[in-house]
Amino acid sequence: MQRIAIYDLDRTITRAPTWTPFLLHAARGRWRMAMAPVAAGAALLHALRLYDRDRLKPIMHRLMLGGALDEAELTLLAEAFAATTDASNIRSGARARMAADRAAGYRIVIATAAHRFYAQAIASRLGVEDLIATEATRDASGRILPLLAGPNCYGAAKLAMIETWFNDQDIARRHAHVRFYSDHPSDAPTFAWADEPVVVSPGKRMAALASAQGWRVERW
């Protein structure tokens, strides 16, 4: 029986979200910082449910990062952002839980709606090799474009991507014990699929769902 511990990233491992802070980090000191109010307006329209996350993410990407970004430049930005995140935005409880899971023989996986192009650097700093994340389209030169390559790794799509990862890793679900950690109701499909759902530092809505479903709650 393989032991797999899957962690959400934003507000589960981290205290605060990472996408907007990464965009601001990347734009800082450049003229694109002037686009921040426009990006904030786009986020407000999403909050008003005028369009979904799959549409919002490319819009904010184009505004704050541009139409195409060289991978080498993006890697430098991601590494610097990951260093800041590691220093100031990682829950101590998340570090302790990952250490305990490793000691118990669990394979650690991060499954996140964050873009791989920066989430990989955060995962690496946490000693996590397995990452399931939102993917960006690339042009013929390998530059990263605003368009998503596949679904945003969120909600039911996250579970589908986890299942694809299991297939790619040749792991039979019936032969695995899965712990899943997240803070957010959008992860209800994966909580229900996991053998051991763990709700992390939930807000009011998530706490109510955890209580109704009998899911364990931990406060990190």
Rank of each mutant, 00 (worst) to 15 (best):
A72R: 14
A94H: 08
L44N: 02
A68C: 02
P185L: 10
A207L: 13
A207D: 07
R49I: 14
T112G: 05
Y106W: 10
E218H: 01
F81Y: 12
S92T: 15
W220H: 07
M1R: 10
D101T: 13
M1N: 02
I132W: 12
I132D: 08
A172S: 15
M64I: 09
A111F: 08
W193Q: 04
A207V: 05
A114E: 00
L50D: 06
E218F: 07
I59K: 04
D195S: 07
A83R: 07
S186Y: 00
G29N: 09
A34H: 12
M64G: 03
I144W: 06
W165A: 10
N167D: 15
T75C: 15
D130S: 13
A42S: 06
W215C: 03
V198A: 00
A68N: 01
L48S: 09
P151W: 12
A136I: 00
G105P: 04
A36Y: 08
Q169S: 13
G67A: 13
T190Y: 11
S141N: 13
A80I: 09
A27G: 12
N167K: 12
L131G: 05
Y51R: 11
S141R: 15
N89A: 10
T20P: 09
W165M: 03
L74P: 14
R30P: 04
R97S: 08
M64A: 07
L131D: 11
M1S: 08
E196L: 08
A16W: 14
C153N: 11
A27H: 12
V200T: 03
T190R: 09
M161Y: 00
M1F: 08
I6L: 09
H177Q: 12
